[in-house]
């Protein structure tokens, strides 16, 4: 079997001239977050959250800018960023539908919710629609087991869902 290699060492990072980490963002991190932590690395998670929130995902160039800004090695930043599930290092749809698949939700029929999403959007779990509007994922426990089945549509939690309700939530997200 031939080895499939990835030329990470020589791989060029796609660059755009305009920085992702803007001066405004840097100033707010400098004022709000850096004084809280003993090391600049402490402010890395808040910085990544800011990037994720602004762009919906975190491009390589943004990771390198964050490394530069916080005086860290790019490898350290990628090490942290790639560990956490909430940071998207690849582009995703404009809206994310995250259906909970953990114990209480699975046994309160989360499958009906996922199935309705799959039918409605015409995609499988883990995929993005062709128009780039929606990404469908299944996540582990969202911490709202009393309202099972639940799903997060972007940053809003929907509890006690029926297939029709997730349908409406998707329509609502689409209209924004």
């Amino acid at each position: 079997m031939a080895w499939i290699t990835k030329p990470s060492g020589t791989m060029a990072v796609e660059q755009r001239s305009e920085p992702y980490l803007t001066e405004d963002m840097k100033n707010s991190i400098r004022e709000t977050y850096l004084p809280r932590y003993e090391t600049s690395k402490g402010a890395l998670l808040p910085t990544l959250h800011k990037l994720q929130h602004t762009y919906g995902w975190i491009p390589r160039q943004a990771l390198m800018e964050a490394a530069d800004f916080l005086d860290l090695k790019p490898a350290d930043v990628i090490d942290t960023a790639s560990f956490y599930e909430e940071f998207w290092l690849k582009p995703k749809g404009e809206h994310v539908i995250a259906v909970c698949r953990s114990i209480a939700c699975e046994f309160c029929d989360h499958k009906a919710i996922t199935d309705r999403c799959r039918e409605k959007l015409g995609i499988e779990v883990g995929e993005t629609t062709d128009d780039g509007k929606f990404t469908l994922v299944e996540l582990e426990c969202l911490g709202a087991c009393g309202g099972a089945p639940v799903a997060l549509v972007d940053e809003k939690l929907h509890e006690n869902l029926s297939p029709d309700e997730i349908d409406r939530a998707i329509d609502e997200a689409r209209s924004h």
Binding site: T39, K41, H49, F83
Partner: peptide, 25 residues
């Protein structure tokens, strides 16, 4: 407030500290 980013293990007390320091949990 320090927000985590979707990792169950960060509820373990020392992983939580690592995450607060900006490292992997």
């Amino acid at each position: 407030v320090h927000r985590g980013a979707g990792a169950y293990i960060c509820g373990e007390e020392t992983a939580l500290l690592e995450s607060l320091e900006g490292k992997r949990g």
